[in-house]
Structures are given as C-alpha cells and as structure tokens.
Simulated assay, not measured.
Amino acid sequence: MNSKTKPAPPPHSTEENIAYLRQMLGELRTVANNEGADMLRYLIEMAYVEAGDILTGLRPLSVRGHRDPAVDVAFKATGKFKL
C-alpha cells in the first residue's frame, strides 16, 4: 500500500445505513412539506415509515423471494365486454 493512500474506512453496518437513510428521509420530508409538494412528502413519508419498520424488526430488509400469493393469480376475463 502506498504511504499516501488512506486505508478504506470500516464499512457501516446495515442498521447504521438504514438509520442514516431514515434521518435523511426525515429531512427531505420537511423540505417537501415546506414546498407544498404533497405527493413527494407522502412518498417520502412512506419510505421513512418503512425504514423505521425495518429498524424495529417489523419488516424484513428485503422482500426478494417473498411473493404475495395474490400476485401469482392469473387474471381470466369473464367474457367480451360491450360498450
């Protein structure tokens, strides 16, 4: 290693990263609210709540591999529609 090269900082834990994301989302929510961007504020709020749920263990970090059975139900038309 070159003497001028700094060693890589230790990686943050997943919990620290999610907590950081939640903090940033809280700040973005305030900005969106102050600007009257209601839909953005709502979407940011949902992400903020999701991050909090992950931190408290109410939700898994990822839903990869966990499918909702209703999503796998095929849609079958009942017949032709007349307008």
Rank of each mutant, 00 (worst) to 15 (best):
R67K: 15
I44Y: 03
D72Q: 07
H66W: 10
V71E: 13
A70T: 14
Y42M: 09
P60K: 12
V71R: 15
R59F: 09
G65A: 02
L55N: 02
S62Y: 02
S62M: 11
L61A: 09
A77M: 12
Y42C: 04
E50I: 02
R59K: 15
P60M: 05
T78P: 10
T78Q: 05
S62E: 12
I44V: 15
K76Y: 00
G57P: 00
R64N: 08
V73W: 01
H66L: 13
G57C: 07
S62H: 06
G65H: 03
I54E: 02
H66Y: 13
L55F: 08
D68V: 02
G52L: 00
P69N: 03
S62V: 14
A77Y: 02
D53P: 01
A51P: 09
D53R: 14
A70Q: 10
A47Y: 04
P60L: 13
M46W: 06
G57H: 06
D68L: 04
D53M: 05
A77T: 14
L58G: 04
L55H: 00
E50N: 13
V63Y: 10
A70G: 00
S62G: 03
V71H: 11
V49W: 03
A70W: 03
R64K: 12
L58P: 01
A74M: 12
G79D: 03
K76L: 11
V49I: 13
H66T: 13
V63A: 09
G57W: 07
V71S: 14
R64S: 12
Y48K: 04
Y42T: 10
V71D: 15
Y42E: 09
L61H: 02
P60A: 04
A47T: 04
D72C: 05
L58D: 05
G79V: 09
L58N: 12
G57E: 07
V49P: 02
P60C: 10
R41H: 10
G57L: 08
M46V: 14
V71K: 14
R41W: 06
E50A: 11
T56A: 04
V73C: 09
A77H: 13
R64I: 11
L61T: 07
A77C: 08
D53E: 11
A74W: 00
A47C: 11
G57T: 01
L61S: 09
A51T: 01
L55W: 03
Y48S: 07
E45G: 10
Y48E: 01
G65E: 01
S62P: 02
R59L: 10
E50P: 09
T78N: 11
A51D: 00
F75R: 15
G57R: 00
G52K: 03
V73S: 09
M46T: 14
D53V: 07
T56C: 03
K80S: 06
R41D: 01
T56K: 04
L61V: 14
G57K: 02
A51H: 01
